[in-house]
Amino acid sequence: MQHWPWFVGGAALAGVCVFHWLTLRRMLAVSGRFTAMINRARFGPEKQVEMTAEELRAAMLAATREAFGPDAAPDAPPTSTKPEAKAGPTLTKQQSAGMHLLFLVALLCGGLVSAFLAGGPSFSGGLRGELFNGFFGGKASSAAVLLFGGVLVGFGTRMAAGCTSGHGLCGVSRFQVGSLLATMAFFGTGVLTSLLLRWLL
């Protein structure tokens, strides 16, 4: 397969993130989808409530009076004077587990289409790649590496609350400090680990 030149790839990745935001009003982020599904498995489905700014204001006022007494919440206008912000916060639905699964399956299909257009797909155990197989040899050792590597990826991305798409692409481009640090961290250890592999194996 001929791989895309860097600027084509760059434009494609950026385009995907922008499209995601335009259609879903959410940042593209993948590890969070795994987190949401694991949470669903561990804690059960969350009851969803959606509210417009108006509904939220009314509900909050009622709840405040109920909690603190009728004098606690006089009818006051919102503190912000910016026109867009006057409406106030809303409650939006979290995405369902079904949506997360749909996204992941779609990723798989993307890979499938790509392989299909390249004359495939061909199925192989393990991973394809001279370097990979050169380093890790047989079935058992490569299986162990993939499993262990996967655990680190799953653990680390949840701990950092993001992965290459959430932090690396969407976070860094919006100058989020946490994302910059996370990206430096994972690139850093990625480089170190790879150099170590070359040196040791």
Partner: peptide, 19 residues
């Protein structure tokens, strides 16, 4: 915290923050 954001938005709801 989404609730904290909601409490911050409106003066009326500040009582939640205080408590």
């Amino acid at each position: 915290c989404e609730m904290y954001e909601i409490f911050t938005f409106s003066e009326t709801l500040a009582v939640w923050k205080t408590r």
